[in-house]
Design a protein around this nucleic acid. Structure first.
Lengths: 194, 194
DNA sequence: TGGCCTCTAGATTGATCGCTCTAGCGATAC
DNA sequence: GTATCGCTAGAGCGATCAATCTAGAGGCCA
């Protein structure tokens, strides 16, 4: 069985990196938050903060990816699923004081040119989301290449809207992005129009 | 006349925050890069790193905003301007080793919940971009409310595509976002179709 | 010349950074 | 019993953090 302390360290790291970013989060703070002994940190993660960071990113990514079935399995179709995905994101953002946005976007931008393992972890997470979403769009009858493109546009709209919304403290960008995402999905569903 | 040293400090800060983010950039590094005396830093910016950061963000934002007339004045219409804007962004990103993306996005995410002055500076910059773009879309005949929404969608697509592209090391998201941006602009130009 | 003010110059502060180190606890194996 | 191993525990390393401090250089005006 996996060590309990190790799990708690990853969870604490994921939470803190989400909220504060990678650079601003100290190892000591992670250890304290996890109620773990400091020595265990480097026992379980000989690669140090970077290794813990990579595992935390992957865990956050997997958790966030579970939102895809949550929204797309309950909705009537991919259009309404897309709409409620953005609507839910806007509500969550506002209700959490503009904190609960993408758990890895800040880290992704921070480390993109400074840590290859972390950059790779972020890339893998994004790719997994694209695959999860692409699958849904293919199931809705959209051709594979087009399905991937729609998935990319959807994720880009969400990530970009998060950046704007968190800075400007308004849900306006998320709602506008949601309408654009719906339009993109509809456009892919009926490629003849336009 | 404005002090030369002060100007150099802001420029150096803007450059470093762009490349490394706000948290990862040290005051000492800014001073060294600017070839400025350390004492001058706190003479010109009694508010410290935070004050310099806010001014650097506004300067970067203004410089980046100049891309709007650059692309929209030379293009035949707003659609081709949008297309070349994303195309240019993709080329630049690839040619600079995925470094030259949005100069303030990393900072915006980093400080959104930790520094109100910096958050405000980022919000002001985004708002200025939305105004610059909205103006162009209004001039193209799009109703004011709709023009703002198109501007938001365009910026969100670009910011989100940057996040994906920098992590995944491919221009694919920027190009896909560009096509979606073009579709959004076209949709706004002919609201009857669809 | 003397006084004032802006800016330069960098040593220094206390705190925190990521990380290494030794020491020892407790359970299992023989 | 005792040797081994996984894990706990935290003191302490050198480096770096943002920021403060004193000291003085140089221009401007009287």
């Amino acid at each position: 069985m996996p060590s309990d302390t190790r799990e708690r360290l990853i969870d604490a790291g994921a939470e803190l990196f989400w909220r504060q970013g990678y650079v601003a989060t100290g190892v000591k703070q992670i250890v304290t938050t996890a109620s773990a002994p400091f020595g265990s940190m480097y026992h379980f993660f000989p690669g140090g903060k970077e290794q813990l960071g990579a595992e935390a990113v992957r865990r956050s990514g997997a958790a966030y990816g579970e939102l895809v079935p949550l929204f797309f399995d309950t909705a009537a179709d991919v259009v309404s699923a897309t709409l409620s995905l953005f609507g839910g994101a806007a509500d969550t953002l506002r209700d959490t004081d503009w904190a609960d946005a993408c758990p890895i976007a800040t880290v992704a931008l921070e480390v993109s040119n400074t840590s290859e393992p972390l950059r790779q972890a972020c890339a893998d997470v994004f790719e997994s989301w694209l695959e999860l979403l692409g699958e849904r769009f293919r199931a809705a009858g959209i051709a594979p290449d087009r399905a991937r493109e729609v998935a990319i546009v959807l994720v880009a709209l969400l990530e970009g809207a998060f950046v704007l919304a968190r800075a400007m403290r308004t849900t306006e960008p998320v709602l506008a992005a949601g309408r654009a995402a719906v339009a993109e999905v509809e456009r892919a569903l009926s490629p003849d129009a336009g």
